Computed example of a mutant assay.
Amino acid sequence: MAMEWSESLVSLCREMIRRPSLSGQEKEMADFVEQRMIELGFDSVERDHYGNVSGRIVLGSGGRRILFEGHMDHVDIVDPSKWTHDPFGAEVVDGRIYGRATSDMKGNLAASIMAAALIKKEKADLNGEIIVAGSVHEECFEGVASEAIGKRWNPDCVVIGEASSLNLKRGQRGRAEVVLETYGKSAHSSNPEVGLNAVKAMVPLLSAIENEFEPKEQPVLGKGILELTDIISSPYPGASVVPERCRVTYDRRLLVGETDTEVLAQIQKIIDEEKGRNPQLKANVSLAVGRETCYTGDSIEATRYAPGWLFPEDNWFVAAAMRGLREAGLNPELSHYAFCTNGSYYAGKAGIPTIGFGGSLESLAHVVDEYIEIDQLEKACLGYMGIIRSVLG
């Protein structure tokens, strides 16, 4: 392993960590990524209206286009006093780089940028294009900003650089945010009979959903999930007021093929059955809609629905990536992500052959004292280089 590029890679990762980049506040990080891509010899670098940064390298006479995507945003630091290392200090201790977004996922974005630059420098007999993209707003909207990247570049295959412990991920469950609302009639709580309590209308409905919802199951991805994550009445606080509205949010984890229409129909069926038992029930189910502002000033808006995806072991890209990783000296296992990623657009919506691969543990995302091991960072870079050689060779 060439220590010269290893030191450059560690330095690149640390510089990224020192630039906080909450969702919608990625500008400083984007500026840095753009400048480093130019310095490292990318043939062109550009941004889109959301603020995603894409760097392009053309090899030989061109050919297949492989896209490496890593998001530039990260979750917030809830309580800095709980960290023993400065979240944005990028301290190196015992072979680890500490800081917010080291594992999720600036380390692997740095590794993919470095891998592309090193491949170009090698002047190997390869034909094709490498695109490395730093995306925005992933922590809010999996796959939404990615659509702009995908439509700009139309890649033949995609590597999502989320942490995978250097294993090859060939799929993931999807995610939907389901909103259930019941409606009543407001009244003074000293005279409740003239009103209709929306919370009391919600309670039997929640019980019915708990008892009657049957998740589908698939051999690889397991069971779908429907988990209640919050409940709130309106008005709130309801001082001496019978609530006229109650809103519940469910986190719905999706299997391959579960559509937004199907997700809503499952709950609507239970609502309709409950209405048969309680004709007064007024209820509605929908998917949540998210709206945020990008650092460019553009709005980003989407229904909170990100489909699941899974490619067979003999898919050409899965096989090529596995071969490339092994030729790079790694020994990856084949598995799938437990969480949702930007692959929901590339694979789930666009049907583009996609894998996940990156250094670090999946369990280190969003935690206090997040870190990435330098050894994992180096091997991620070697792995990306191996995948490029395998696909474009």
Rank of each mutant, 00 (worst) to 15 (best):
S11Q: 11
C13I: 01
S21V: 15
E26Q: 08
V33F: 00
L40A: 10
G41I: 15
F42W: 13
N52L: 14
G55I: 09
I57P: 01
L59D: 00
G60Q: 02
D79Q: 02
D79T: 06
P80S: 03
W83Q: 13
P87C: 13
D94R: 11
R100I: 11
S103F: 10
S103Y: 06
M105N: 14
A111K: 08
A115Y: 04
K123A: 10
G134C: 09
V136F: 01
H137Y: 11
E138D: 07
C140V: 15
S146F: 01
K151I: 08
W153L: 03
N154S: 12
P155T: 07
V158T: 15
V159M: 03
E162R: 06
S165I: 09
K169H: 08
R170P: 00
G174R: 02
G174N: 06
R175M: 12
E177A: 13
A187T: 08
L196R: 11
A201K: 07
A201I: 00
E210Y: 09
G224P: 01
L228D: 05
D230T: 13
I231A: 15
S234L: 15
S234F: 15
A239W: 04
V241L: 07
E244I: 12
R245N: 11
C246L: 12
T249G: 00
Y250D: 01
L255F: 05
T259G: 13
D260T: 13
D260P: 11
T261W: 03
V263Q: 06
I267V: 14
Q268M: 02
I271A: 02
D272T: 10
G276D: 07
A283H: 04
A283P: 06
A288C: 10
R291K: 12
R291Y: 07
R291H: 10
E292Q: 08
T293N: 08
E301V: 14
R304C: 06
A306K: 00
W309Y: 15
P312L: 06
W316E: 07
M322V: 00
R323Q: 04
L325E: 02
R326K: 06
R326M: 01
E327P: 03
F339W: 05
C340G: 04
G343M: 02
S344Q: 13
I352S: 00
I355H: 04
G358I: 10
E362H: 10
S363H: 09
V367G: 02
Y371Q: 09
E373F: 14
I387K: 03
I388K: 02
G393S: 09
